[in-house]
């Protein structure tokens, strides 16, 4: 049985929306970051689906770049979050509010 591309695109759109809601609703910096990773992976799924559908290798190449960038973001993001946890013992973004605005 061949599953049509629309199903993959739909599920990636759903994952993207879930991630977006997670970023907007959750207050823990780590969970927000995980939601962003979920969104990144939904983008990957979209790329792979289109690459398969259009028989264009560029889409798969793009996924490699996205994976690398996601890894780099993990390194930088976790480093910043850990630095904050060490000094404040919390990563709740509502408690990190020295800068007004």
């Amino acid at each position: 049985m061949i599953i049509p591309a629309q199903y993959y695109l739909t599920i990636s759109a759903v994952l993207f929306t879930l991630g977006m809601v997670g970023v907007l609703v959750r207050r823990n910096a780590l969970v927000i970051f995980m939601s962003i990773e979920l969104m990144l992976n939904s983008v990957n799924l979209t790329f792979v689906t289109f690459a398969r559908q259009l028989a264009a290798i560029e889409g798969q190449v793009a996924v490699f770049f996205v994976v690398v960038i996601a890894a780099v973001e993990v390194v930088v993001g976790l480093a910043i979050i850990i630095a904050i946890f060490r000094t404040r013992s919390t990563v709740d973004i509502d408690d990190v509010d020295l800068l007004r605005g």
Binding site: V23, A29, F33, I36, V43, V76, G77, I84, I93, V96
Partner: peptide, 20 residues
Amino acid sequence: QEAGMKYFLLGAFSTVFFLY
């Protein structure tokens, strides 16, 4: 630290929109 975290979280969030 706070500036870094805010910039990072919002920056990564906007990057995902660009990518999608």
